[in-house]
Nucleic acid binder design. Structure first.
Lengths: 276, 276
DNA sequence: CAGCGTTCTTTCATTGGTTGGAATAGTATT
DNA sequence: AATACTATTCCAACCAATGAAAGAACGCTG
């Protein structure tokens, strides 16, 4: 009788050593691979950086491309798609404040001809929403869509000073991470600084890193009185003195706040006494 | 003998009448619910518009919120998040061209003080990437992030004229959908118009809908010579004549094209004869 | 303040969409 | 021609995803 060949009855196909995370998280982690330095990526690069096998990445990417979250270039690489940009433009804290603030940012820019920045806070960092720069302006560290630390930038200090108490305490307790070009503040001084920012509506920081600059920032409030954004101007150190810039920055920030419903007229039923 | 009670032995739990589409498609369809008119939505609104049960929507939304694609407001509603906006800002055809073009758009805007638009094509529509408008400018139909038809807008005609032959033919064969304020062009005239646009680098359209305006658009080319965007100016009908605007629009579009690598200097090895 | 409708959230048995190793095809480099 | 890498197709196993049901939490009304 023929001895049955010792062929493995269970083909190794389909053996899944370990299962991963939810599908959406994987898809989003693919999107997260893109960055300022990585704007166009191949399949294998995406798979590698997102930590998943190529076939899995390909399948997910195919869905994202079909929807328009990603687009495929002629050379086979993938980039972030216009459809995603379109949905993202509905982000109230992204394009939303930007749209309202832009005319006033432009006014400030026209008058000063220096960098004008608008930023919001996302968790423990500031995200740059808009930046106006003349072609011949000094170098500046951050780009639109990029992130900046809260503790060592003018907009960051404004956003931190305007954050809820709980978040501020958590941030203050964390060890300050050193950034090149700015000396990190000890906790006590930082507390005093934040208090000053709240009182004066102005934050000021000197940097030396990409170039020697002075930044002056001021908070933007919404209708509820929360700090939703920070507006700043960045000038070469030694040019216009900060105390000259401060009023212009504050006035611009107030103008934006007003358009967001802050300082709005009171509701009709309590508008005047004569109506009672 | 006791007749066994007709209790269903299979608890109705877990009965899944029909299975839906892939998870990612569902998640993306949730994002797609957001629009200009719907910037903040409740769970049930999202579930309803995306066509899925509330629990499913909630589970997906939870993931999206955890990543930052969505954010939850104090009142429980959801909005598009800054994190998504941040990734989207890496879109070459979205924020990419916008960033390069903005200074030149501003120049044109400063000189003319009229609406200046920048748009790219996404499938069968134009997507508005940037719009500069003075506060007192005439009303204009489209907002940044919004979509406009190809056949009845100046930027649309430019993008259509610059599209690949195959796409153009497919579009021309489709019946023209009437838009208010512009008379739709018969196919023959449209063909001639597109040809003219290609030859002259200018498209012109008169509208009457939101207000009486004239739009003049010109193509923006990339390094490969493809039309990647369209730049236009919108003025009140009867003000500056189109033939006066055309050179300024063309010049601005060429300036942007040049910065995208179009019309770049030839490669070093064939730069001059004197080197041979 | 009970009653009612709506929205939000948690639970859980079921199962079909998801998975990734292997094989194949395609492309660039040596 | 060989090597190395990337992209794509295939498919059986299986676990993450699913949604009815029930409960919790509001908001509104009489």
């Amino acid at each position: 009788m023929t001895v049955p060949l010792d062929t493995e009855p269970t083909p190794t196909r389909g053996k899944r050593p370990k299962q991963g995370e939810p599908v959406i998280d994987r898809a989003l982690s693919l999107l997260a691979v893109f960055s300022d330095r990585r704007r166009a990526l191949t399949l294998s690069e995406l798979a590698r950086h997102a930590g998943m096998p190529a076939p899995t990445a390909l399948r997910l990417i195919a869905r994202l491309v079909a929807w328009g979250a990603l687009e495929r270039l002629d050379d086979g690489r993938y980039v972030v798609g216009v459809r995603l940009w379109e949905v993202a433009s509905l982000s109230p804290r992204g394009h939303g404040v930007r749209e309202i603030a832009l005319p006033y940012l432009e006014d400030l820019f026209e008058v000063t001809r220096h960098h004008v920045l608008l930023a919001v806070r996302d968790n423990e960092e500031a995200v740059l929403i808009e930046r106006l720069s003349s072609k011949d302006a000094t170098e500046v560290a951050y780009r639109v869509g990029g992130r900046a630390p809260l503790r060592s930038t003018a907009v960051g200090l404004v956003l931190l000073a305007g954050a809820d108490q709980q978040f501020q305490e958590a941030t203050l307790r964390k060890p300050p991470e050193n950034e090149p070009g700015v000396e990190s503040m000890p906790e006590g001084q930082l507390r005093r600084t934040l208090s000053d920012v709240r009182r004066t509506g102005i934050a000021m920081i000197r940097r030396s890193h990409p170039s020697k600059t002075v930044s002056v920032a001021s908070p933007v409030f919404d209708a509820q009185g929360s700090v939703v954004a920070a507006l700043s101007i960045v000038v070469p150190d030694g040019s216009t003195p900060p105390n000259v810039l401060a009023p212009a920055v504050r006035a611009t920030a107030r103008a934006v706040s007003r358009n967001l419903g802050h300082l709005a007229e009171v509701s009709p039923d309590v508008r005047t006494h004569s109506e009672g």
